[in-house]
Design a binder for these strands. Structure first.
Lengths: 155, 155
DNA sequence: GGAATCCCTGGGCATTCTGCCTAGCACAGC
DNA sequence: GCTGTGCTAGGCAGAATGCCCAGGGATTCC
């Protein structure tokens, strides 16, 4: 469950140079190949490593605008709203949060004008009472995990 | 820049089974290996594929609590706040958004009690006027990209 | 109508990595 | 003292990679 120093270094190495194989990683870390293999297996069956899926940049496929929308949900409509938002491709992420039946979702759009269309589609649903949207201008800290991994593995 | 149908299928395949290699992917897609290799190279130099870093689950390394904090920033303090938040490992993501010098950040913590410590550390900084935090309870739609990819590649 | 260009195919090559195995060693807990 | 666990070090066959080439359609540009 907890990860040790070697796990931390392995994760950091994989994050920096994902294409390297088990053999190369073992060379870099100065341990035996079998060790790296065992650690990787453990991290994956542990659920620490969820996968190695390609990170796709929405901007590069034509969706340069990102926004966060806070949705106020009518009591008892949570499941319907979830199902509805799942069908909208521009909804990249959805969370339910503390508060008065609130949800937070991450949206992308082709342009600011297109964002209006997306929002209309998102909120054009019965269970949603109100929505407030914040458009992202800059992303000073892109989604990262390494600093946390280092802290969790004892620096 | 735009991606075609084959690109879309390739991305979807890689997202579903990231461990398969170029050769296996070419077999699945029914195209030549060189084609897959060329597409992958192009997608990566295009920036469509940012990388293949391991997706680490914060919950699995001891940070099961996620929250989003909206920060109100004192005029002109943006850079200092950014620098400050970058040093906090529990800040996984930071965006500046439209509004009155607002920022939105994603936090994780070891527990609800620990979240208080994280928030104190985040807002214990001069440039931050006010913070409002929403704790995530459920995550009905985890960060996803495939539906958008399919839409962008013409279904 | 050509000609040039681009993309894909299908194949070949040496090198490298993988998955799987064995055996020995050090260290912890019971 | 014994057992289990984790790491090292090595070996092996099979598979994949990176890189190369020649050829064929399709498209675009003169």
């Amino acid at each position: 469950m907890a990860i040790d120093h070697l796990d931390g270094e392995l994760l950091e190495l994989l994050a920096r140079e994902p294409r390297i194989g088990v053999l190369e990683a073992s060379r870099r870390l100065g341990v035996a190949r079998g060790t790296v293999q065992a650690r990787l297996d453990r991290l994956q069956s542990n659920g620490v490593i969820r996968g190695f899926g390609p990170e796709v940049d929405p901007a590069a496929i034509g969706y340069p605008v990102t926004a966060f929308a806070t949705l106020e949900i009518k009591q008892g409509q949570g499941n319907d709203v979830r199902a509805h938002l799942t069908t909208v491709p521009e909804v990249l992420e959805l969370h339910t949060t503390t508060g008065h039946g609130d949800m937070l979702c991450r949206l992308v759009a082709r342009s600011n004008a297109d964002l209006q269309r997306v929002i209309d589609r998102v909120v054009g649903f019965d269970g949603i009472v109100r929505a407030s949207t914040a458009i992202v201008m800059e992303n000073p800290v892109p989604l990262r995990i390494i600093p946390l991994v280092k802290q969790a593995s004892g620096d």
